[in-house]
Design a protein around this nucleic acid. Structure first.
Length: 423
RNA sequence: GGACGGGUGGCCGAGUGGUCGAAGGCAACGGUUUGCUAAACCGUCAUACGGUCAAAAGCUGUAUCGAGGGUUCGAAUCCCUCCCCGUCCGCCA
């Protein structure tokens, strides 16, 4: 949510930001609604003021046992006007709120222009894709041949975009989660959390998935939403809170399943584990002071990259263009891991600085000393998506005989296992 | 799921229809007193959004006693719905 006062002062900046995201201008509409709402508010308040004054006189008259009949008819006359104005003011405010709720965050000055991912800028690259002496298989072929990855069984009970992992692959998933959590908590200062996976409307509105992206989410019969990422649960830890300056930056992490309807992804990545309705992820969230969020963003991105470095997986880091960024973000780095089975880099982490955009939506603030509360800045990043990391491990560590070498960093989590082979 | 009891300012807590944004206390802040500390005393002490102003300050108005609706000239107080917390019962990993 953007600051309406900022829009009043710099409406042209809003339209410029929208244009960078490939959206039509909306400042005129926002300003018109805002003006109309405030005019209604002023008129309403004048009526209320008059009503309050007369009501006090009635009270005073009655206390003195005087007749207040005239006064009461006077106030009654105000009633219709007050009720009508109140309804109008409320309707106008709701209209304005609904509009502001779907206006995306303003891209940072350092974000490159561009309408989609073709304009993303590579900022660094690590490792070199391995040359295989044989034609590398993709993870689906590898996992299926190992007898440890069963899409058919998953489809029978759940439909498309689900998988059953067995044996060493099931354990590999757990090992990756534990390894990532240990790294982020033990070396990078993130505190581990176990959070709700079902949340209310307000929580999902807070992080920005609602109201615009409800189609991407699953909803329970009780009305709760399944989290599409632990960003929702972790960031909402500070909703409606005023935290002390001294506790910032807060660095939070959680290992959770993520549920996504993938409504807009029909036909994309239809096979394999790349795009599933359910996957696990170690999420990183930072809550910072405004002046610290840029540095924290760089740090967080490095925390995510470190996972890939420890696993010795080649990756590149992309700075997303304005047109490719998510709704709540003002600047995003995507980390893409090399997948030999696809012969290209694929997104495995996305690290975003949301500035105060989410904080406004969830009213998350902090206080410096005795000063007035200010909105915090919120950041989130995957550290990493476990399902896709498993895919990357399988494809990059595959051997000619179809077995998969266990990365050294994971062996302690695999009971010392060095290789995953068909039993 | 059933039956009760609760949600009031940073905290505690009073307030069942009329100058109540809300007594009192604690904490905090400023001051007086004081060798220092403490104590005592005096004062200040919610937020949001409007209007006024070039702007800020100031002044002024409105709203806010869990949320939303309703009754009433007037609601913290009465009614309805919802949310949250607690206790007991049932069920249950």
């Amino acid at each position: 949510m953007l600051d309406i006062r900022w829009i009043r002062e710099e409406p042209e900046a809003l339209d410029r930001a929208l244009s960078r995201r490939g959206q039509p201008p909306r400042a005129d509409l926002v300003l018109a609604l805002d003006r109309a709402r405030r005019d209604l508010q002023t008129r309403l308040q004048e009526l209320q003021s008059e009503r309050n004054r007369l009501s006090r006189e009635i009270g005073a008259a009655k206390a003195k046992k005087l007749d207040a009949g005239d006064l009461m008819t006077k106030v009654a006359a105000l009633k219709d006007d007050t009720a009508r104005l109140e309804a109008e003011e409320r309707a106008k405010a709701a209209e304005l709120d609904a509009l502001l709720a779907v206006v995306p965050n303003v891209p940072d000055a350092s974000v490159p222009d561009g309408k989609d991912e073709t304009a993303n800028v590579e900022v660094r690259r690590h490792g070199t894709p391995k040359k295989f002496a044989f034609a590398p298989k993709d993870h689906t072929a590898l996992g299926t041949a190992l007898g440890l990855m069963d899409f058919d069984a998953a489809a029978r009970m759940s439909g498309a975009r689900f998988v059953v992992l067995k044996g060493a692959l099931a354990r590999l998933e757990r090992a990756l989660g534990s390894f990532m959590l240990d790294l982020q908590t033990g070396e990078h200062g993130y505190s581990e959390h176990n959070v709700p996976h079902l949340v209310r409307d307000e929580a999902v509105f807070g992080t920005g998935q609602l109201p615009k992206f409800a189609d991407d989410l699953f909803k329970t019969t009780l009305g709760n939403w399944l989290i599409p990422t632990a960003e929702v649960s972790l960031t909402n830890l500070v909703r409606e809170q005023i935290v002390d300056d001294a506790v910032l930056p807060m660095r939070l992490t959680a290992y959770t399943p993520c549920y996504r309807s993938e409504a807009g992804a029909a036909g994309k990545d239809t096979t394999g584990m790349i795009r599933q309705h359910q996957f696990t992820k170690v999420e990183l969230v930072s809550i910072t002071r405004p002046e610290d969020s840029d540095a924290e963003h760089e740090r967080m991105t490095r925390c995510a990259e470190t996972v890939l470095e420890r696993l010795e997986l080649p990756y590149r880091t992309m700075l997303l263009s304005a047109g490719d960024m998510g709704f709540s973000s003002r600047k995003t780095y995507d980390i893409e891991v090399w997948l030999p089975g696809q012969d290209r880099y694929r997104e495995i982490s996305s690290c975003s600085n949301c500035g105060d955009f989410q904080a406004r939506r969830m009213n998350a603030r902090f206080r410096r000393g005795e000063q007035k509360p200010e909105f915090v800045h919120t950041l989130n990043g995957s550290g990493l998506a476990v399902g896709r990391t498993l895919v990357a491990v399988l494809e990059n560590y595959q051997n000619a005989d179809g077995s998969v070498t266990v990365p050294a960093a994971l062996r302690p989590y695999m009971g010392g296992m060095e290789k995953i082979a068909r039993a």
